[in-house]
Nucleic acid binder design. Structure first.
Lengths: 354, 354
DNA sequence: CTGAAAGCGCTTACAG
DNA sequence: CTGAAAGCGCTTACAG
């Protein structure tokens, strides 16, 4: 009844193989599926294999998936454009890691672009629901639409977030970076060099990567017995840091730690202000950045701080997702959540306290 | 009989809506599919819509696809890793364009990583066959496996190559760059500045982007009445250009045009040799490059030449592919092949002939 | 105007 | 050891 939809030669199906080999279509499925649970005579098996080979058979992944088997496709859902034009430096290494590991594990990747439209709630819901076409899905973005994601998790659809998440009672599987430890270590390093008056500059946007870094900084300061009350300073989008820098000079601040985000706004604002004030690092002020700045601009490169292991995060997320996908659905796995260490970057912008 | 395969709450199906609205599942399909060919009473339609809304229905993309409708998924098959670590500069803008346009047209993207394995013929065949999971597929790479691609085309599977192709009797749909015209224009520019002794340096690997550039260079030279016999010079991978540069000096060569490829090998070899020889551009020698070099290295930036419109190629390829996918299969479209113009880049490495 | 049926190409219990 | 049947969740002619 249904129409082929296209002219041209049809791709061979299991039914074609069955006809050629003189067996039933179900037998073909068993042979090609490589299921040992069912035992077939070697000759039957070989006849099927030969017929499949002769016809150049390739299974239809859509049908395979609908029949509840696996697809070998992993989804990647980004809450913004997957290939950002201006923040390529941030996502790209993650994508490289994802593709690398997906290829290694024989998984194709579905990029769900639905989110890019910046759509309504209903569109988001539909877009997220659509990830089901894959065996499982990776999610990447600063914020989580808890409704749709919760429903996906309820239905036991395998998913892994890239970046730590604490929504949904902390049950969201993820691979993140240990910003807390890395940030605390940066402060520890400064303290070790004799710095006592340290400021932490961050953007206003509250997302976990930001609050984790702040927690780390405060922990590092507290561990060293430093006063913490006036340590954290915010800078809004588009704001200048000129006044802040001037204030710090009068306060005797010797080191500044700055947040690094996708946009790099805080870092850029700070380095511009330092340049305008004619201050150089580390001579006039020690500077550390909690991540990898897009380019150090006026400040000597590399800037002291740490590396976010983006590529490894991508790779590891794929590994975890494949584990979830291939796991026996009967057994309940513990929620998979991992934080990867951030390697320190020595850099040249930190020196002993004056 | 079949098992759900997963624990957890099932997502609502059309059958659930039908039960709730008191209609048949097929009617639900008609309503939600928005088909005007079938006319339904407004009340029935509304009841179905309400029920769908109440259940939070989202169609199963896999089932939709299997039932021979469209999928809104476009494939992207690269004959190497999709996200190259070292040649990111070359593919990335294409990917950006692809994603941009795919998102604009509501298409998801399937990245087929099968090729990355560097597999056998059979693996290639399987990997390429697998692209059928999408409504159509984009192909990206220097070489074409004509067998599998030919079979795909025979079956009327919509596909578009990025980059000009002349295989399969020139019937492969593609979006390329007009290297011939752009390369001829570069030579024309040099001639206009009085250069008569010009050399063209290229790599040995023969692919269409290389031969098109060479054709353009030779055409530009021929149009200007320049002798063409000793114009083209090859450099192998890893070879130095030191001797070439020395020879050119004795031959009175005043301008060199160099090929630009993914690896940038020829350009890099040449600029290193120029540096070692202590030659500067454009004072000692005019230099033009047929593309956008990864970074100009020792040579002043930007280098005179042209821009490959990679992002536009990606965008346009998606547009063409969607046209093919949505075309009425009954009517035969002409083979879609387009060459995009390369914008000239003035640069600062070309001057009047000494 | 609406519903029952067949089919997309597979997998998987189940019956011989 | 092998085959017939049901089912995955849809779409689409076709019959009422």
């Amino acid at each position: 009844v249904a129409v082929t939809g296209r002219t041209g030669k049809r791709a061979p199906r299991q039914a074609d193989i069955a006809r050629l080999a003189g067996v039933s279509q179900a037998t073909v499925s068993v042979v090609l599926g490589g299921r040992q649970s069912v035992r077939l005579s070697a000759t039957t098996r070989q006849r099927v294999l030969d017929a499949a080979d002769e016809l150049g058979y390739q299974p239809d992944p859509v049908a395979t998936r609908l029949a509840s088997a696996r697809n070998n496709m992993l989804g990647l859902y980004t809450f913004t454009a997957t290939f950002p034009t201006d923040v390529a430096h941030s996502y790209y290494p993650i994508l490289v890691g994802i593709e690398e590991q997906a290829a290694a594990l024989g998984q194709d990747l579905v990029l769900f672009t639905g989110a890019s439209g910046g759509g309504s709630r209903a569109r988001d819901e539909a877009a997220i629901r659509r990830t089901r076409i894959a065996d499982g899905c990776l999610f990447l973005g600063r914020h989580v639409p808890v409704g749709p994601i919760g429903r996906l998790m309820e239905s036991a659809f395998p998913l892994v977030f890239i970046g730590r998440r604490d929504e949904l009672d902390g049950r969201i599987p993820h691979v993140g970076a240990d910003y807390v430890a890395a940030s605390a270590a940066v402060v520890g390093q400064l303290v070790g060099l004799g710095h006592r008056r340290i400021r932490y500059l961050r953007e206003r946007d509250d997302a976990l990567p930001s609050t984790d870094r702040e927690r780390g900084v405060l922990r590092g300061a507290a561990d060293a017995g430093l006063p913490v009350d006036d340590m954290v300073v915010h800078v809004g989008p588009g704001e200048s840091c000129d006044e802040l820098v001037a204030t710090w000079r009068t306060e005797g601040v010797t080191a500044v730690v700055v947040e690094e985000t996708d946009t790099g706004a805080a870092f850029t604002a700070l380095t511009r202000a330092l340049e305008r004030a004619g201050l150089s690092c580390p001579d006039d002020l020690s500077l550390a950045v909690l991540g990898t700045p897009p380019s150090s601009g006026p400040v000597p490169s590399p800037v002291t701080g740490f590396e976010v292991p983006r590529r490894e995060m991508g790779r590891r997320a794929v590994e975890l997702l494949v584990e979830l996908v291939t796991a026996d659905p009967a057994v309940d796995l513990p929620v998979r959540q991992e934080l990867l260490a951030c390697a320190p970057r020595a850099g040249g912008t930190v020196g002993p306290a004056g």
